[in-house]
Nucleic acid binder design. Structure first.
Lengths: 331, 331
DNA sequence: CGCTCAAATGCAACCGGTTGCAAAAAGGCG
DNA sequence: CGCCTTTTTGCAACCGGTTGCATTTGAGCG
């Protein structure tokens, strides 16, 4: 049923190689044959089979896009940007949802079976083992939104979470808050660990600050809300740095449901600047991650690895910026 | 570098066919050879190349998942559910972002080049031409969240938007609203058209109701907000049925920014029940689409078409349900 | 017009698998 | 143990392309 190279070759009265060559960039074909072939292809509605050609060329133009962040609104933008940028470069994202998967070996097997040219691990919560497993299988890989390491074993593109923690602390201090708390995401998530680190580094270096901390069970609305409800039971802090925006909204909602007011009674600063953060009913002061840069840079890296698989691993970190909205009291 | 069938065959001391057969369901292999092959494969770390085998079997297990709704929070859930369900059935989603694409032919070409087994068009705003183009190319296709047609030319799974319109109208009437308006999405979107239809069908059949309508330029926060700001300039209605939840939040935000109160001054009912609708700072009364059912059903259909490509097209519609929250005054 | 050299072409092998078919091996039975 | 049937096996062709290499074609030139 589908029309193949051979059909075109016969119709055009040339060899199969000639047809193949007219469809491959930079191959040697005379204008005359090219014309003939193009005409025949046109009439037959022929289009080369990318998968068949990948067998010999070793390139599928398939990029595995793997993530487990399907509940973080930020990731809708992330997927949008990734898919568009990949498409613009003629690459196709094979999407893998790792929500229920804990074993990197399975993902590697799966994506190797489909001969992906490269893999982008897009997740802030996934263990670095996933990216490493791909590297070990010699599949070009970049960990986007991954954890910074001074001697990275795979390419990592993201933000400096420690610095974000510091930034949050400085912001809260500059607003005159003195009883300050960290409301983190899952305790074991690397992003939580790093943000906490920077946050307390600054706070502990400042005199007269009373600090406390607690952790939500997930980066989710419900977890944030539940944790904040707990905190409100007994002498809450004046201001909280929340693990991320969704958590912040959960906390916000808990605070409001208790009849308290933000920022008058309690201040909140989030992290991510997801799309909804600017919605006026939320109006969250937060720290923006430059996701567009992170994504472009990730793709750039993975593309570079296609040509140079042994490229020396690097960490690319982008700086974040505080977005002032309405959940902190003014300076 | 990668280990192939041949390597395993040599190591196990059998023919390539034998190896192939041990890895294909239901092929005739003796237990003895199977053991040998499995051992060799294990030691070599062999896994069959799905793309190579697709060449002869004609099956890639690739499913094109195409959408242009990368700004609707509902679609994060949609992608989550689609990818997981597909994976559970051993299928792989090839994600295509159609945001900047208007020509169906390009999508068809692209996905044919990758020999996808089937395609799911997941979009409420994409023209039916996209799905039809795939059907014409004899690629199994299902349009999820698509428009109902009494004589569908392709499989359509979604909701009855006309009925949703009626449901919204009845809900507003039951709350005693009399000056009622429709705040639609883009005028030309089929979902807008249908929802409007059902909405006014009920309202016009009721005496003493004053109606009006207007349209946002997109299903987005900003468009909803801008349109509502306009409306607030001159004698707004008592209650609005908004095109979808994001639009509703935009409208909500405009209302609040004018110092008005919901639901005391103005009532709002949305459609979709996106995850954020239940966030207490939003707390939107809305109509829930059963997306899980829609997605399961879509996948079921596309899988069925793999075996029976000429399956007679059907429309599957699921009923929606009003979710009572805080943006309409009580009964 | 004959010669040289570069460009264009086709052949055939190959990419990593699958599969129809005939031959070989195994099993069942008298 | 021989004969017949069933199962297992390997051969070889094929899926839809690509590519190295030798050959043919044609352009350029004296």
């Amino acid at each position: 049923m589908p029309v193949t190279l051979k059909d075109v070759a016969e119709k055009a009265g040339v060899s199969r190689s000639a047809v193949s060559r007219t469809f491959t960039e930079g191959a040697s074909v005379s204008l005359k044959t090219r014309r003939k072939v193009e005409k025949a292809a046109q009439e037959l509605g022929y289009h080369p089979n990318a998968l068949a050609s990948s067998l010999t060329t070793g390139r599928t133009k398939l990029i595995g896009l793997i993530s487990n962040n399907f509940h973080n609104p930020l990731f809708l933008e992330v997927f949008d940007l990734f898919t568009r940028s990949l498409q613009d470069r003629g690459l196709r994202p094979l999407l893998v949802n790792l929500t229920d998967e804990t074993n990197p070996a399975n993902s590697v097997r799966l994506l190797r079976q489909y001969s992906v040219d490269g893999v982008i691990v897009a997740s802030s919560t996934l263990s670095p083992e996933f990216a490493k497993a791909f590297r070990d299988a010699r599949v070009p890989v970049v960990h986007s939104f991954g954890r910074f390491a001074s001697a990275p074993s795979v390419h990592v593109v993201g933000i400096d979470n420690v610095e974000c923690g510091r930034m949050a602390a400085r912001t809260l201090l500059s607003r005159g808050y003195r009883r300050i708390a960290f409301l983190g995401g899952p305790k074991e998530a690397t992003s939580t660990i790093d943000r906490r680190l920077g946050f307390f580094e600054v706070l502990n270096a400042t005199d007269g600050i009373e600090t406390s901390e607690s952790f939500a069970t997930a980066y989710s609305f419900d977890a944030g809300r539940a944790e904040m409800l707990q905190l409100l039971e007994a002498n809450p802090a004046e201001a909280y740095f929340c693990g991320d925006d969704v958590l912040s909204v959960g906390a916000l909602s808990a605070i409001q449901s208790k009849g308290l007011c933000v920022p008058d009674n309690i201040g909140i600063i989030g992290l991510n600047d997801m799309e909804m953060a600017r919605w006026e009913n939320i109006n969250l002061t937060t720290i923006r991650q430059p996701i567009r840069q992170i994504i472009d840079s990730s793709i750039e890296l993975v593309v570079a690895m296609l040509d140079d698989p042994d490229r020396y691993p690097e960490a690319r970190l982008f700086s974040c910026e505080v977005i002032e909205r309405g959940t902190l009291r003014p300076r």
